[in-house]
């Protein structure tokens, strides 16, 4: 009997459940390692070499290198863990959030100041052509 997962149908939203956590375990633990300054330095010095120390899938590594957060989430990443990549890059959280919505950081910041994304409003995946 299949488990009840009604949240799978919410547009533009990936729920980090036990299945996603299993898929993303090493990706998220790689992110966790960036909480140590020494690891951040090693990652920045050679991203690919640092990623190769982790038993992550090639797709996960490429998504991290491309800073494609939506792809990272599809592949099991969780935003609280992925945020540590942004912190390593010196990026604000709004920069990261905007990058997932197909908006520039300025457009995203303006939307938030105007009260945020209206429920039910159209969504755009940045990987689709603008």
């Amino acid at each position: 009997m299949a488990l009840d997962k009604p949240y799978k149908s919410i547009p533009g939203t990936t729920i980090f459940d036990a299945e996603q956590a299993r898929r993303g375990y090493h990706l998220n633990q790689f992110c966790m390692s960036l909480m140590k300054a020494q690891n951040r330095e090693r990652f920045k010095a050679n991203e690919r070499a640092y990623l190769d120390e982790w038993p992550m899938s090639e797709d996960q590594k490429l998504a991290v290198l491309a800073r494609d957060l939506n792809r990272c989430i599809e592949l099991g990443g969780n935003i609280y863990f992925l945020a540590k990549i942004g912190a390593t890059d010196g990026r604000s959280f709004q920069f990261m959030a905007a990058s997932m919505t197909g908006m520039t950081q300025e457009e995203y910041a303006r939307m938030m100041l105007q009260g945020g994304r209206v429920p039910g409003s159209p969504l755009r995946d940045p990987r689709e052509k603008r």
């Binding site: 919410i10 547009p11 533009g12 990936t14 939506n70 959030a97 938030m112 009260g115 994304r117 969504l123």
Partner: peptide, 16 residues
């Protein structure tokens, strides 16, 4: 209300 991930990031629902 807040959503920090995916294309729906930035959601706010004042009424809810």
């Amino acid at each position: 209300s807040h959503q920090l991930q995916g294309p729906r990031a930035g959601l706010i629902n004042r009424e809810w």
